[in-house]
Nucleic acid binder design. Structure first.
Lengths: 128, 128
DNA sequence: GGGAGTAGGTACTTTTTGGTAACCATCGAT
DNA sequence: ATCGATGGTTACCAAAAAGTACCTACTCCC
């Protein structure tokens, strides 16, 4: 179905706005990862939602899915595409802004449970 | 209540992620506006949701609310705060990325009904 | 007195999103 | 033969977000 946005910001939000997508992009920004790796790093996400968010990112062209092995316990690997990497600069800036904001607001905390975007800049096209 | 995020990106999304917030920020980025102005520019938003999103932006320190007149038909004006203006660069980049994306995907359209972020850079602290 | 304009609140419903739990299929190891 | 790891799917539920409808209260204007 044809999706419609009022401006570019909304279009971008449509891509990165899922509940787990920032974290998924973060982890995939470091290196390609298998499904089970992502599940281990994000224990709180359910299989269903993980698959769902990965499918959305894939259909948006942000990540790519590779099936390793022929008919074994498949090794499915997800990786950022060039388009996905082109989000790096935005993600890093959002990360910085959010971190700074959280450091100034007492009632806001950021649990860096499973890595963050502070290092993503090295791998993604952050422009830094 | 204490809100918790897993990384800075989510914290930022918590601020700009509302359905109408990008558009509100866009219009307020041009100049301070009254409630009725915003309603005229965004005819599709309901009074309830408009008030709600403005309150959220206000409590996040992104916009400020000024009541003009003493006990008349109040002239309530909303304006970006410095913190709000500091989002400019991020919003402009998200806008550019989204616009570019939309121009490459046939099934995605952006209806520039009520202005856009292309010019917000002039007023907000876009860093451009 | 009866609108219209201004700013907003409240109750209720709908839509969207995310979460739970159970299931399938395959392989290798025990 | 059963278990665990792998990578899913499906049906069903719950919570969050947004939308609808209707209400208040004040003032100015006719």
């Amino acid at each position: 179905m044809k999706q419609s946005y009022n401006n570019g910001v909304e279009a971008t939000l449509g891509v990165i706005g899922g509940k787990w997508k920032p974290q998924l992009l973060c982890h995939l920004g470091n290196r390609p990862q298998r499904t089970c790796d992502l599940r281990r790093e994000l224990p709180a996400i359910s299989q269903k939602v993980l698959t769902q968010q990965l499918r959305e990112l894939e259909s948006d062209g942000i990540i790519s899915r590779h099936i390793g092995g022929e008919r074994a316990p498949f090794k499915v690997t997800y990786d950022l595409t060039d388009l996905g990497r082109s989000l790096g600069q935005i993600l890093v800036q959002m990360s910085v802004w959010g971190e700074q904001r959280a450091s100034q607001v007492p009632d806001m905390e950021i649990t860096h449970d499973h890595g963050g975007f502070s290092n993503i800049g090295l791998k993604m096209d952050s422009g830094i």
